[in-house]
């Protein structure tokens, strides 16, 4: 299924739809967001994509621990890499949004801080991997850390941000779900939002599969030499 092309086409179609409809539809008037609410179609799907990619990465990490193969290690690493890129993009889109609605790009809001921390946790994963020269050992220890890092996402991204005061939706004193925007997400938004989430996530998977094939080729070459 992964080699078939229909989902790649779907991803492109959905993203074209996101970029056209996202900028053209009539958006609801929410608080002080005005037109910047359109960023919702780009900022939030980044985090959805990141979570999906990290989840796939941790599944391959567990697979690697149960049955170590070079492939599962490459899969786990590459999904984590793309996930981190999505996270950084989510942080950047969020900062741009915050610049217009909160007054400054980085206001040390708990949401921003904890998102940055979770990305640092994953950055440490790559450093840990690079510090180990033995391939088998690298895969195994990387997988162990990957599982641990994924578990740390629960408090950093899903629990603590809901408990502290924040300007971002979903914090204490602010209603709504941090992801879905709660009641703010009315029908017109949903029409673009969910296709955008699926489109971006598929794009992430697509990028990763390409990188995986490249890594596998490199691996084959080093084996042959």
């Amino acid at each position: 299924m992964i080699r078939k092309s229909w989902w790649k086409t779907l991803s492109v179609v959905l993203l074209i739809y996101t970029f056209t409809a996202g900028f053209l539809i009539k958006v609801p008037h929410v608080g002080n967001l005005y037109g910047s609410i359109r960023n919702f179609f780009f900022h939030v799907p980044m985090w959805f994509g990141m979570m999906v990619l990290f989840l796939i990465s941790v599944i391959y990490a567990i697979k690697h621990l149960r049955n170590p193969t070079i492939d599962s290690d490459i899969y786990s690493k590459e999904y984590a890499k793309t996930g981190t890129v999505f996270g950084v993009l989510g942080l950047i889109t969020g900062s741009i949004w915050a610049n217009y609605t909160w007054g400054e790009a980085w206001s040390n809001d708990p949401k921003q801080l904890l998102a940055a921390i979770s990305l640092l946790i994953y950055a440490a994963y790559f450093i840990l991997r690079n510090s180990i020269t033995d391939i088998d050992k690298r895969g195994r220890i990387g997988a162990v850390y990957n599982v641990f890092a994924c578990a740390m996402l629960f408090p950093t991204l899903w629990i603590i941000p809901r408990m502290v005061e924040s300007l971002h939706p979903g914090g204490q004193g602010v209603e709504g779900n941090p992801g879905m925007g709660g009641k703010d997400l009315d029908a017109t938004m949903r029409v673009v939002f969910w296709p955008a989430v699926i489109g971006w996530t598929l794009l992430g998977v697509w990028i990763t599969t390409l990188k995986i094939r490249f890594e596998q080729l490199k691996e084959k070459q080093t084996v042959n030499v």
Binding site: I121, S131, P155
Partner: peptide, 19 residues
Amino acid sequence: KAQQQAALMAILGFPIIIP
């Protein structure tokens, strides 16, 4: 299990301990 253990402790530990 890795090289440069002491340095790695700080790199791994500080982000994880922040929450």
